[in-house]
């Protein structure tokens, strides 16, 4: 939309109207390239998402050397699979074990590892999760249907800096011999945030 082809439309909400007005003005002033906006949207709507992270996890489950590199230097190991860039420049991978469960939050805003998980879901950015993940992580996980034994240590990671955290969930039992590709199908977005576990094979 440019400054010369406004649609007359009074059914817009105030927010919709404000966004339209800003885009129209910025485009008219030559400050944004509308085609660039379309590519930005297309990238995060259709290309980058939690399937990337699932491939990282499945590789770590099947390749011990890769897992070692991943835990030592998350950014480089994730870059080996081609996932780099904005909001994932400095990655840290946290390994879940039978005795330790990791949970990631950003209490101050919505920091999230875009190259491996895509853009965060609404609940991750909203007040209920951000407020309670640090004070009541077990209650929060229970709302996702995840109840951990009392003897499991819960580690909550508040992403207050530019480090971005990815949880490496435990490999489910009964998956010996499964291909990396089939294993990746078991890795959910929530299992890489810590609000879930990897799926059991069917």
């Amino acid at each position: 939309m440019t400054g010369h082809d406004h649609q007359h439309d009074s059914s817009l909400s105030p927010t919709e109207l404000r966004v339209k007005a800003l885009e129209s003005l910025l485009t008219e002033k030559g400050l944004v390239d509308p085609a660039a906006l379309d590519i930005l949207i297309e990238t995060y709507e259709n290309k980058v998402g939690p399937r990337n992270g699932a491939r990282v996890v499945a590789r770590a489950w099947t390749d011990p050397d890769y897992k070692k590199r991943l835990l030592e230097d998350g950014s480089s190991a994730i870059a080996e699979l081609g996932y780099t860039g904005r909001q994932g420049e400095d990655m840290v991978v946290l390994e879940n074990t039978p005795s330790v469960h990791n949970l990631v939050v950003c209490t101050l805003c919505s920091c999230y590892p875009w190259p491996v998980l895509g853009l965060p879901p609404v609940w991750y950015k909203a007040a209920p999760y951000r407020s309670r993940a640090v004070i009541d992580p077990r209650g929060v996980m229970a709302e996702f249907g995840l109840v951990l034994d009392d003897d499991v240590e819960v580690r909550v990671w508040d992403s207050t800096a530019e480090l971005r955290y990815l949880v490496l969930p435990e490999r489910p039992a009964g998956t010996d011999g499964m291909s990396e590709e089939a294993l990746a199908e078991l890795v959910t977005r929530d299992s890489m945030i810590g609000t879930g576990l990897a799926l059991q094979p069917k």
Binding site: T107, W123, A126, P128, S131, R132, V134
Partner: peptide
């Protein structure tokens, strides 16, 4: 908001669009 109470259930949406 870390530690605040009373902000409601988390209410995750299934198959949430981007």
């Amino acid at each position: 908001m870390g530690g605040m109470h009373g902000l409601g259930p988390i209410d995750p949406e299934e198959n949430e669009p981007v």
